[in-house]
């Protein structure tokens, strides 16, 4: 167990370092698909640096919660991301928190973000918080049902165990896992404010959700919140990669080559998933706000269906 700590530390730093790049790549691909040149893939890093150097403007009646929330949001998201095995499994923190905890940690981050949106007392912040919580009230159970499906399938809620089970001989193909995958993808789109649900690239659109909540933020606070959003996207893609394409992930005690291979493959998986995400985003139109609950409801139903099928088929006869 103790040997895992360097890996854990490496992963903590890796998710932080890679997250802006992933966002940069998806933006770049999207721009190219739209026949624009697009900003450089390192633009998100530059944005963060620029924001950090700027003066912070805080509304007069903002409370301490407004100023503390970005750090809480970032910290919980970061810890959650560090719990997902990226290039190597067998993380020491993984034994401390399972997939349900990851979902709940993201819930804590969302809770604080929604409160921060309400703190200044503007109508935009309120609309963002209200809608974010409405989406979450369907997305979170959908995610949990997908988690249930995976856990029942693999007999564990630990991500490392699930990943190992998926690699093992007993996994096989299962319709429940396919349902969980679809549900997870829908949730990932919704939770990361991607296109059919929310538009990450706009301000000032009446249907915006995430951007409306953070409208009052500026300077370093905004930088921290943006970084949290980057990490969250990376988390979801890592999660999908870890569970559904676990091949090549280094196990604890693998040699240096194993880790290098795991790292390379992980980068490849992320790039591929990011590419697919961009393709999907360019191919589809944004939904009306009140179509989103139906969209997320589909994820919830699919997750429930997957769980139910496993409940029936995994039973002793």
């Amino acid at each position: 167990m103790r040997t895992g700590w360097p890996t854990q530390l490496a992963q903590l730093i890796l998710v932080l370092g890679l997250a802006p790049l992933l966002t940069g790549v998806t933006r770049k691909v999207r721009a190219r698909l739209l026949r624009r040149r697009g900003a450089s893939v390192v633009q998100p890093y530059r944005d963060l640096l620029k924001l950090i150097r700027k003066e912070v403007v805080v509304a007069e009646n903002a409370s301490w919660l407004f100023r503390a929330a970005p750090y809480v949001i970032f910290a919980t998201t970061w810890v959650a991301a560090a719990l997902v095995p990226t290039f190597a499994t067998g993380l020491p923190l993984g034994a401390a928190a399972d997939l349900i905890v990851i979902v709940a940690l993201l819930g804590t981050a969302r809770f604080m973000l929604a409160l921060a949106g309400l703190d200044v007392g503007t109508s935009f912040g309120g609309i963002g918080s209200s809608r974010e919580m409405m989406f979450a009230s369907l997305a979170e159970p959908a995610m949990l049902m997908a988690v249930f499906t995976l856990s029942l399938f693999a007999g564990s809620t630990e991500l490392s165990s699930i990943s190992a089970f998926m690699l093992g001989p007993r996994a096989g193909l299962s319709i429940s896992v396919a349902l969980a995958l679809v549900a997870l993808i829908i949730v990932a789109l919704g939770e990361n404010a991607r296109i059919p649900v929310d538009n990450p690239a706009t301000h000032l659109e009446l249907t915006m959700v995430h951007e409306a909540m953070i409208l009052e933020y500026s300077g370093r606070h905004l930088a921290v919140i943006e970084a949290a959003a980057f990490v969250k996207l990376l988390l979801y893609l890592s999660l999908i990669a870890c569970v559904f394409v676990p091949w090549g992930t280094a196990v604890a005690g693998a040699g240096l080559f194993g880790y290098a291979l795991g790292l390379g493959l992980y980068a490849g998986k992320l790039a591929l998933l990011g590419f697919l995400l961009s393709v999907f985003e360019t191919a589809i139109a944004k939904m009306r706000v009140f179509r989103v609950p139906e969209f997320l409801g589909v994820a919830l139903m699919l997750g429930l269906l997957g769980t139910m099928l496993l409940f029936v088929s995994r039973a002793p006869h």
Binding site: L173, S174, I175, A178, L179, M301, L302, L305
Partner: peptide, 17 residues
Amino acid sequence: TDIAHLLAGSMVLVSFL
């Protein structure tokens, strides 16, 4: 059998969609 099962299940999935 897994593949057959997956395909049959996908029918249900598409029915839902």
